[in-house]
Amino acid sequence: MLKNGESESILYRLYALSGLKDALKSRRHFSDYIFKVILGLVIIIIVSPFFLILFQVAGVGFWQVFGTGPGQGLEFLFTFPGAGLEGGIRNAFVGTVELIVVASAVGIPLSVCGAIYINEYTRPGHVRGIVEFTSDVLAGIPSIVFGAFGFVFLVDFLHIGMGIIAGSLTLAFMMIPTILRTTQEALRAVPMSLREASLALGATKWSTTWNVTLRAAFPGVITGFLLAIGRVMGETAPLIFTAGNSLIVPTELAGPGSWIASMPYTIWAYISDPREYLQVKAHGTALALMIMVLAIDLIANLISRKVTRRLV
């Protein structure tokens, strides 16, 4: 048995740090140790695909996005497709941005207002229950079902036709549940006392909601926007039958002139093509898309972490 003085030596500390000291005491200590080691390995298995995917996508696509040659770097994002490796993916890049902007313009007000209504103007009960339930169902619906619905409802039934409008409306439908539920969570986290303080000053529910509650919940609401945008930005399936595809940026709101390309769709189209330069371009597009999506996700993460830290 070690005396107290010895337990301070460096070797002993390393030994203690490895956990082996305890593991060898009995069978139960040992199985506890093995269990922890196995779980440690499991977590490595779980996160490793992230690095494998990053390695593949960045390995081939890095110079497309960060290089300075023809069709690389900014030229990759901002020139239209050309022959071979020349030209970029301006149609897809601008297309994705336009789709997201229009989808947000429709989806964000709709879902924020909806969240305000069910959180501030209803008591827990039927209306709130139904809206919460249907948004959860909506969040679980496969993206291809959204695509098929967008096709049959927007393109066919409403005669909007394929293009930017149908595509971004379909994406807006997909954004609603995410934003609605995160906004609702954010509103719910605003302490009741804050609302009461405003109401006690004689403000109406309306102005309390807009000036006090929503302002307090704002970071949470922004997180919801970002998460929803990040999610639909990478969606391919809903766009296949609603947005069409195009080598240029849409110039009209209806008809073939409104057909619009997107980055995910472009990746899909290029990757199934045997020509090698298109594969390289697919990787470049995938890398650019990943960077955009992950950056948005990261910002959302930072905001929500900052908020929780402030509240705690």
Partner: peptide, 9 residues
């Protein structure tokens, strides 16, 4: 807290 003690026992 001695080295030989099993915390579970």
């Amino acid at each position: 807290y001695g080295v030989g003690t099993s915390v579970y026992d």
